[in-house]
Design a protein around this nucleic acid. Structure first.
Lengths: 365, 365
DNA sequence: CAGGTCGATGTAATCGATTCCACGAGGAGG
DNA sequence: CCTCCTCGTGGAATCGATTACATCGACCTG
């Protein structure tokens, strides 16, 4: 493969001049510039990014460590991160931690070894030692979605508390009183926050959240299934199951189906994280939607700010409730409707028709 | 950050010795080894992968350019590729082409600039010039899923022809005669092959595939919707719509729903590429499943073989039909059943219960 | 006991770029 | 006409590792 020396020889100049042309340095004669450019063309020369990185000490690469690629929420996040990064001239290396702390640590380590310019993390647990060390050492870093308390790193996330309140109001309005939750791992902020928000919202309606109605999941489908089975085995099963992420909701759907029960007649279901597929399940699932694309973009901008020596601000965006059919129909006209935004503009690639909500008619206004 | 020189100083040896210890070179005294290791520990030294790559001319990194990350099929492929690569000591950089040739070219270019050791591609179109050039120049490369005819590169893919024949037999057995297909882009091999396989299977049953029943899609949901609407507007609409990928099937689902029609009573639906969500749609969708994980692993092994100078063999794995409810129920007992394997072992993370096929009973045996 | 071999180690070249510094030519100003 | 900038350019140092080659004892063998 042709190197800068070959180009220099071909153009009849020194390597320094070639480098200057390629980097837009002002002090090069027009003549030299054209000769160099011609040589570059002729040889099909492309600068070696590895060598350049070694010298300049920057890779123009961002690392992104997410908890689970197979989760559509994270896939979309990864996609928006890559888009924004590309727009800013960065590449992204994605590490999939699969909710496993050891894998998370592995990826953080290799990314750091590769001298990425900055790290975007959605921590699986309390944080790998390597990561905390890097944060302390000043590696530009930003937490997305989840974060670790007590670590001085900007956090870009979405606040689901208000949406959870809307959801509980919606459920309460439908007459549901026994509400259960499939929680995420207590080691994650999102795992804890969603339970807390849920409990507080219930309290606001004079309802309690008994321990039996808090199932411990791990953000994976299988756990959603297991926990839901536990709920159904209870002497007094809940009327509603709220899954703290979309995968566990899927598991819950399975469990309910396996018992031959119907949703929402026999038991209602709601989920945190909205994904396109929830429109097509049987029945469509009521969910809390995060502004995923915005989160990804904001996170990249914050990180690039940090890389550039600027502060890098934390951002908290609101989530919103999207009502579908899985919790039951509003009792005719009345009932104080919560502020429901039905899928506003959202560049999700799949569907988005006005008829998304499908067959059912909703008394609008 | 500490460098190899710091370690050498701390251990009281030369950088050469440090390097030898770190690379497992035999000729180092036990004494020197322990001192170096201690120094590495003390300083928290990690070798700079950039510098190492420059010197050794290998990055231990694989590039993977896929057509669409938001497509669960490719997400799963990416996941299995990363797993196998990690097991073999490689990292993976994923480039999402989003079915856009310009993006594909962008990713191939940056990946090559970064001097990845090998490239895994699922080409979006006829192939970017940069890619073909790299292939000719001898960059280790392997095509996954899709490929480009006439380019001398191993291909790891799955052959759907047999499964498509099974599907058509299944549909024919259910009494369907007017079958339509939503095709993928003609620029992709998978786009063409699936139509061809479908046409041939129909011919085998004495059926024709009129042009009006071939809709041109682009592997994205919106196109599936558009094409399906076209089918429904036909004076004589098809009885079955077969989507050449899962996203277009989703679009088709939308279109059918939007008209207030029912599946499978009013129109049947089948898809290429099985994804966990198809179990939970209304109704569950009959699909052709590729052995995605095996494809990813085989592709990585073939690529690593090429990197190691070995030949790197092409692999073609069979796909299989998974019958669900979206095409209708078999007419009671009779009917020559095609060889249907209902989701055999498959390490898909989501569900996989024996009751997957849900409420409906299928006369087994 | 001389010569050869082998093991452990250090010195320095090298990978392919960027960039500091020195140098010469040409133009402006006194 | 001389001095002093400025501009364009090339030589060489540099980034942090790996590794070929040289060196130096110690040990083995005839």
């Amino acid at each position: 493969m042709a190197g800068i020396k070959d180009v220099a020889a071909e153009a009849g100049v020194s390597v320094a001049t070639v480098s200057r042309v390629l980097n837009g340095h002002p002090s090069v004669s027009a003549d030299a510039r054209t000769r160099v450019l011609a040589a570059v063309q002729a040889l099909g020369y492309r600068p070696n990014a590895v060598a350049r990185s070694l010298r300049t000490d920057q890779t123009r690469t961002l690392g992104l460590v997410i908890s689970d690629v197979m989760n559509p929420y994270f896939t979309e996040l990864a996609r928006s991160v890559e888009e924004e990064a590309r727009a800013l001239g960065y590449s992204v290396i994605i590490g999939n931690a699969d909710e496993r702390p050891d894998l998370q640590d592995h990826h953080v380590t290799t990314l750091l070894d590769r001298r990425i310019d900055g790290l975007l993390v959605s921590p699986t647990d309390g944080g790998s030692p390597r990561m905390l060390e890097a944060a302390r050492a000043g590696t530009p870093m930003v937490f997305v979605d989840r974060w670790i308390p007590g670590v001085d790193v900007p956090v870009v996330r979405s606040d689901g508390a208000a949406a959870v309140r809307d959801l509980v109001a919606h459920l309460h309005g439908l007459g549901h009183r026994r509400l259960a939750i499939i929680a995420g791992p207590a080691a994650t902020t999102t795992g804890r926050e969603r339970v807390d928000a849920f409990r507080e919202a219930l309290t606001g309606h004079g309802l309690a959240l008994p321990d039996a109605y808090i199932g411990q999941g791990d953000f994976q489908a299988a756990s959603g299934r297991r926990v839901t089975e536990g709920f159904l085995d209870l002497p007094e099963p809940p009327e509603v199951v709220f899954a703290a992420d979309n995968l566990m909701a899927l598991g819950a759907l399975d469990a309910v189906r396996a018992r031959g029960l119907r949703i929402p007649e026999d038991i209602a279901l709601a989920a945190f994280d909205d994904i396109p597929w929830f429109t097509h399940t049987d029945p469509p699932v009521t969910a809390i939607a995060q502004p995923t694309g915005d989160l990804g973009r904001a996170a990249v901008r914050a990180l690039v700010d940090r890389i550039g020596g600027r502060p890098g601000e934390s951002v908290t965006l609101p989530a919103r409730l999207v009502v579908r059919r899985s919790c039951g129909e509003p009792p005719a006209a009345a009932a104080p409707r919560p502020p429901v935004n039905q899928s506003p503009k959202d560049q999700s690639p799949v569907n988005q028709s006005p008829k998304d909500q499908s067959p059912v008619q909703r008394s609008t206004s």
